[in-house]
C-alpha cells in the first residue's frame, strides 16, 4: 500500500486544509473529511502528513481513520456502488442485490474491479426507505431495484 508517494503540491494541499482549521487536533475529523474529499481516500502517507501538520502522533490519525466507516484507506472504483443494508432495505431483499452484484462484478464487498471501474460497498440506511431496496452509484439513487435490473444498470455506466 505504500505505492502512494506524496508530491510537494499535494503536501501543500494538506497543509492548507489543516491551516484552514487552525491546525487544531480537535478538528481532526473535519480535516480528514476535507482531505478525503480531495484525494478520494486516505493512504498512509496522507495520514502521516496530516499528523505532521497537527503535531500529533500518526497513530492517533490512523486510529480515527480506521474507527469510522466513512474513511477509507483504499481507493474506490470510478463508479462507487453502495447497496443500502438498512433494515427496511434488508427486509425488502437488499441482500439479493448484493449477491447479484458480487456475481456480476466478480468481486467481494469492499473490493474494486480489476479495471478500476466499479467498487462495491454496503452502507447503513440512506433514509430513502420508501424506495427500498436502494442502491447508489456515485450520488445517483436507484430505488425499488430488482436483481434482474442489475445488468441493465451496470451497462449504463461506460
Amino acid at each position: 500500500m505504500n505505492t502512494f508517494k506524496l508530491q510537494d503540491c499535494q503536501k501543500t494541499t494538506i497543509k492548507n486544509i489543516c491551516a484552514s482549521f487552525k491546525n487544531d487536533p480537535g478538528e481532526l475529523i473535519n480535516i480528514l473529511h476535507k482531505t478525503q474529499g480531495e484525494f478520494g481516500y486516505l493512504p498512509e502517507d496522507v495520514q502521516r502528513e496530516v499528523a505532521l501538520n497537527l503535531n500529533i502522533p500518526v497513530a492517533q490519525v490512523y486510529g480515527v481513520v480506521t474507527f469510522y466507516s466513512f474513511f477509507t484507506m483504499k481507493p474506490k472504483g470510478k463508479h462507487a456502488i453502495s447497496v443500502c443494508l438498512g433494515t427496511a432495505c434488508y427486509v425488502r431483499g437488499a441482500d439479493k442485490l448484493v449477491d447479484e452484484l458480487k456475481e456480476q462484478l466478480k468481486i467481494k464487498v469492499g473490493e474494486v474491479t480489476p479495471d478500476g471501474k466499479f467498487s462495491l460497498d454496503c452502507l447503513r440506511c440512506v433514509g430513502a426507505c420508501g424506495l427500498a431496496p436502494v442502491l447508489l452509484i456515485g450520488d445517483k439513487v436507484y430505488g425499488r431495484v430488482d436483481p434482474e435490473q442489475i445488468t441493465e444498470i451496470l451497462e449504463s455506466y461506460e
Binding site: P25, E27, I29, N30, Y68
Partner: peptide, 25 residues
C-alpha cells in the same frame, strides 16, 4: 457543526462527545 463519520456508537452521548473532540468515538 461537527460531522460524524459513520459510527453507530457515536449516538451514545459520551462517545459522541469524544468524536466531537476529534477522537475515536
Amino acid at each position: 457543526l461537527r460531522y460524524g463519520a459513520g459510527a453507530f456508537v457515536c449516538g451514545e452521548e459520551t462517545a459522541l462527545i469524544h468524536s466531537m473532540e476529534g477522537k475515536r468515538g
